[in-house]
Design a protein around this nucleic acid. Structure first.
Length: 477
RNA sequence: CGGGGUGUAGCGCAGUUGGUUAGCGUACCGCGUUUGGGACGCGGGGGUCGGCGGUUCGAGUCCGCCCACCCCGACCA
């Protein structure tokens, strides 16, 4: 339960974030540095994220499976860029059952290698393709600096791994998933994301191309919220995923991988929250509607609670919670549920019972102005509309915020200015030298080159050479 | 791994030049009154003062070493 007020978001964003997570009981610090315990409320949110994604995966022909958490060290070493990218952050098991292991086992930082190994066994013919497998799993990356949900040593995610007959199919899959992610983010989480392609420097270790959905947090920093990689034949060659094609010729398969993690919980917190606490998107909120009964004496209590229980049944289509804790005042409960981000709160007291009405407070509109006074009749269908409108408002608000913090500076001096409090959308020549220089001088990194951008002509914001595409630059988590 | 900081009740903190029984707010438990925007009274439980060692008649306080965590930098879903 919470006490007192949170730090103000505008004054100390990161402290606001840290405290909110603990106070809202999303997660707590584990006794191991950099690890978190996801508490029931946080996990319920993650479960709703899982459901929304899993449904989309299944609809597009994917199936779930589970691969081991331990990977032989030698597997990691088979793909050169992959091992270079991940070796600094590996947790490695060298002892098992009291015996020194003959070969150290890596705790998976991601599963391309072990899945590649298995695919090599399973794929013999073009008839075995495509393979479209996803797994829900935990992975470990030994990060130096950690933050709740955004970067922890262990995190939970889904990782899809597919193998295809042709380069075109693999690219199509990569983009299909990217769009699936964007659809999820926008329509479930009300997080407006920009789908795009990563620069060479920012792409996944071992990928030919990495795509990303980038979201702007309320402190204007960017958060990579999901990634989809076209791995080309890199892993197929490393693990010998080969098949006989339609002409009876041996070919390497084309593979992809893609993931969304518990980091997305952080994206939700930092996309919608305010000084009062969380604001959860209705379609993912563990509790969509909380009912707070109000009464002064036992007679009123009986009268009110009867209606509340009936109401709870009528609203079975929603995720409803009745706050019947009788040691707390309504005022306290209002603040408590607001901090936890429940989209709608129904206040129901003796007056409402007499009038056959209910007060509906909308979390995203503070104070009395957000309160609706509705008749009980047909309440469920009214609430459905209200929740949909709520989602639309959240999305619009987040989109407006983002768009008002994207700038198109005309020169590098302006660029340096705008990336201090926003994103810059500028021509970039594509040279890693410029990218690195910009990063060193401003802390801003390339986020993505958005999909669907027409080729045009401009000058690189840094070096002034010809450039064909614009790229987003921002400080990022 | 470099720079800075903090470790005292679940959380937030106070604790004087070393001095008796370690304190406050909040949370928690009990009883009663309360309840339409963070209620109140009375009574209670809860601490190896981060760890180890040293100085001292006496250490939360002084000294040394170690550990943990946080913030800032180089890597990252």
């Amino acid at each position: 339960m919470s006490e007192e007020k949170l730090p103000k978001q505008s004054e100390n964003f990161s402290e606001w974030y840290n405290q909110l997570i603990q106070r809202a009981e999303l997660a707590d610090y584990a006794p191991v540095r950099g690890c978190m315990v996801v508490r029931p409320y946080g996990w319920a949110l993650w479960e709703n994220i899982q459901k929304a994604l899993d449904k989309r995966f299944k609809e597009t022909g994917h199936v779930n499976a589970a691969f081991p958490m331990f990977i032989p060290m030698s597997f990691l070493e088979k793909e050169k860029e992959h091992v270079e990218g991940f070796s600094p952050e590996l947790a490695i098991v060298t002892i098992g059952g009291g015996q020194t292991l003959e070969e150290p086992l890596v705790v998976r930082p991601t599963s391309e290698t072990i899945i590649g190994h298995m695919y090599a066994k399973w794929v013999k013919s073009y008839r075995d393709l495509p393979i479209l497998i996803n797994q829900w799993a935990n992975v470990v990356r030994w990060e130096m600096r950690t933050r709740m949900f955004l970067r922890t040593l262990e995190f939970y995610w889904q990782e899809g791994h597919t193998a295809h007959e042709t380069a075109e199919e693999a690219e199509e899959e990569t983009l299909k998933i990217l769009n699936l992610y964007a659809d999820f983010a926008i329509n479930e989480a009300a997080v407006p994301v920009i789908p795009g392609i990563k620069s060479e420097a920012e792409k996944f270790a071992g990928a030919n191309k990495s795509y990303t959905i980038e979201a702007m947090m309320l402190d204007t920093k960017a958060l990579q919220s999901g990634t989809s990689h076209n791995l080309g034949q890199n892993f197929a060659k490393a693990f010998e995923i080969q098949y006989l094609d339609r002409n009876n010729e041996l070919q390497y398969a084309w593979t992809t991988s893609w993931g969304v993690s518990t980091r997305f919980v952080g994206a939700i917190i930092m996309s919608h929250g305010d000084d009062q606490g969380l604001i959860l998107p209705p379609r993912l909120a563990p509790i969509q509607i909380v009912i707070v009964p109000i009464f002064k004496n036992d007679d009123d209590r009986e009268k009110v609670m009867k209606v509340v229980r009936d109401l709870e049944k009528d609203l079975a289509q929603f995720r409803v919670k009745v706050d019947d804790r009788d040691n707390l005042t309504p005022g306290f409960k209002f603040n408590d549920w607001e901090m936890r981000g429940v989209p709608l709160r129904l206040e129901l007291g003796p007056r409402d019972v007499d009038n056959q009405t209910v007060v509906v407070a909308q979390r995203d509109i503070p104070g009395k102005s957000g309160k609706l006074f509705l008749p009980m009749e047909n309440l469920a269908s009214q609430l459905e509309t209200i929740l949909n409108d709520f989602h639309d408002r959240l999305l619009k608000k987040a989109t407006d915020f983002r768009d008002s913090h994207i700038f198109e500076p005309n020169n590098y001096v302006e660029f340096q200015e705008v990336v201090q409090n926003g994103w810059a959308y500028v021509y970039w020549c594509g040279d890693a030298v410029c990218e690195t220089a910009i990063k060193n001088e401003t802390k801003a990194t390339t986020r993505c080159r958005p999909l669907g951008q027409e080729k045009s002509h401009g000058k690189c914001i840094y070096c002034g050479k010809d450039a064909e595409y614009k790229t987003y630059f921002a400080k990022a988590y």
